[in-house]
């Protein structure tokens, strides 16, 4: 009884870490600019396909592709930010929603054009395969690796945000954009950097996700819903909130599918609606 329970808990945490990487960037940029970016998971997909291409075409080892997944997603996002997003920062949310859905649609088609609609399997290096046993349960090595990477990044982000000058400008911009501008902070530039970082993290998440949930062109929409739920529950602009929310949702999703498979995603949607109605700014909102 306890064995499966701990196994589910472990898988749930690993899944939650993945959701954290995918959503933390959106949480911060949404908190800062109120820009509704529904193409966020398209940037994650860019990271995923970067890893696939580097491994299959150029024979890179998996771990080395991860920084490239980050960089490519960040670079692509900067291009979009400069050209399409910037003119719409003060536009209505409908315009933002439509533009970014449009970009997500295009990304799905482009991915299907280059890679087909099939799943992209990748071969993990030997040291990330298999599992280790402890307390009578076996832990997947890859999932341990994923959790370690995500926690390290979370720590890095929190330290950056709390203790560096750049972090201070980001926090000021999220808390009160007008006041930050008044203090002479270049909010637009801060936003552009944060946006690139956030998209890069999503790209990294997309690459790390392949082994767990697979990769096909529908990724841009399938995980968007989960990412939005994490953002909504975690609260805008809160890294700790995103981490907790992602873990909770990861665990409840895995547990729900294991114990009550007949409810499907129903439970998660219900949780999101209830949380939004109870605390519209999220459970762990900065504001």
């Amino acid at each position: 009884m306890i064995g499966p329970f701990l196994g589910v808990l472990f898988d749930g945490i690993a899944y939650g870490m993945l959701l954290f990487l995918l959503s933390v960037g959106l949480s911060v940029t949404l908190g800062m600019m109120n820009f509704v970016n529904l193409a966020h998971c398209a940037f994650a997909m860019v990271g995923g396909y970067t890893t696939v291409t580097l491994m299959h075409v150029f024979g890179w080892p998996f771990v080395w592709t991860l920084p490239m997944a980050f960089l490519t997603a960040a670079a692509v996002s900067v291009i979009f930010e400069r050209t399409l997003y910037r003119p719409l920062y003060r536009a209505s949310e409908l315009d933002q929603v439509l533009l970014t859905i449009g970009i997500a649609f295009v990304s799905v088609a482009v991915a299907a054009w280059f890679f087909g609609t099939v799943q992209q399997p990748i071969q993990m290096p030997p040291y990330l395969r298999g599992s280790v046993s402890a307390f009578g349960i076996s832990f997947g090595v890859y999932r341990l690796f994923l959790i370690a990477v995500a926690l390290a990044i979370a720590l890095l982000l929190i330290v950056t945000l709390e203790f560096t000058r750049f972090g201070a400008t980001v926090r000021a911009s999220v808390d009160n954009q007008r006041m930050a501008r008044g203090l002479g902070i270049d909010v637009d530039r801060t936003f552009a950097i944060t946006f690139a970082l956030g998209s890069g993290l999503a790209g990294l998440g997309g690459a790390l996700a392949i082994e767990i949930v697979g990769l096909d062109p529908s990724f841009a929409f399938t995980y968007l819903v989960y990412v939005l739920i994490v953002v909504a529950v975690g609260g805008l602009g809160s890294i700790g909130g995103s981490l907790i929310a992602a873990t909770l949702i990861g665990i409840s999703d895995v547990a729900g599918k294991y114990y009550v498979p007949e409810t499907g995603a129903f439970l998660i949607y219900l949780v999101m609606i209830v949380v939004l109605m109870w605390r519209p700014a999220g459970l762990f909102a900065r504001r």
Binding site: D95, L99, G102, A104, F105, V106, A112
Partner: peptide, 22 residues
């Protein structure tokens, strides 16, 4: 044409409408 390519054009159309035809 396959549905994913149909959505390519819908996506382009959305971007164009939002940017140029408010």
């Amino acid at each position: 044409i396959a549905p994913q390519y149909w959505y390519f054009w819908i996506g382009i159309l959305l971007i164009v409408v939002v940017m140029f035809l408010p």
